[in-house]
Write a protein that binds this DNA or RNA. Structure first.
Lengths: 115, 115
DNA sequence: TTTCGTTATGTTTTTAAAAGTATAACGCAA
DNA sequence: TTGCGTTATACTTTTAAAAACATAACGAAA
């Protein structure tokens, strides 16, 4: 595809997200958090990996779960390892589909943008 | 196009913008500001229409002009009406092309999102 | 029945962004 | 040559977001 925008080294960039009731419930950062929770089985580990506080991560998870009214993450405290967190099947489904959308979006950016 | 994302009334939304040196220089809000400046010939009027302070509008214009290193807006003070602001041909070209991108992007959202 | 690492929350502090205030400079027109 | 409405810019205040801090609850395992 040819680039018409004339002068300097522009780069097209952007973001997409899902809304429920006009409110953002899932975007690129939150999906990454969910993925890391899925992989590590731990909110704390996911938070550390993303260099955010546990509190912030927990707040996000909480917000996501509330937003969807059906939880994407289930967590328990106590026991072996201190506690655990994991994605529900619904949660897994949602992130897969969101990432597909994201792939399409990246393709869109590549086709229309310029480095 | 069929919607696969299963459960609730999701809505896909997003934003695109232009970057120069990894920095956002033009997005949806700024383009609207430029359009209103173009129509009214006045930064102040454009700011009022968009319910922002003159200062904020001026700062944005300033930032845009600096980002592109070639001005999109030229302004003068004093004289009839107190002063004036207008888009350069380059500025006009840029907003036209950005709005074309935006149209494509809206089409993308419509094709992939769900109300 | 104590230790441990995590989940779960509330509270406070810090930081950054936005909004507001103030004022100078300008040049046409009366 | 004064008044007017706007551009231009600095400075202060307010607001909102993020970070930091503190602490309780939990349950497996030792």
């Amino acid at each position: 595809m040819t680039q018409t925008m004339s002068i300097p080294p522009f780069k097209l960039n952007g973001r997409i997200w899902l809304e429920i009731d006009e409110e953002k419930v899932l975007g690129h950062g939150r999906v990454e958090l969910l993925e890391r929770i899925h992989e590590s089985g731990s909110i704390r580990q996911a938070a550390l990996q993303m260099k955010m506080s546990y509190k912030q991560a927990w707040d996000l998870v909480n917000h996501i779960n509330n937003g969807f009214k059906q939880p994407l993450v289930i967590s328990k405290r106590g026991g072996k390892g201190g506690g655990i967190a994991l994605l529900t099947p619904f949660g897994q489904e949602v992130i897969v589909e969101f990432k597909e959308l994201q792939q399409k979006f990246f393709r869109f950016l590549d086709e229309n943008g310029r480095k």
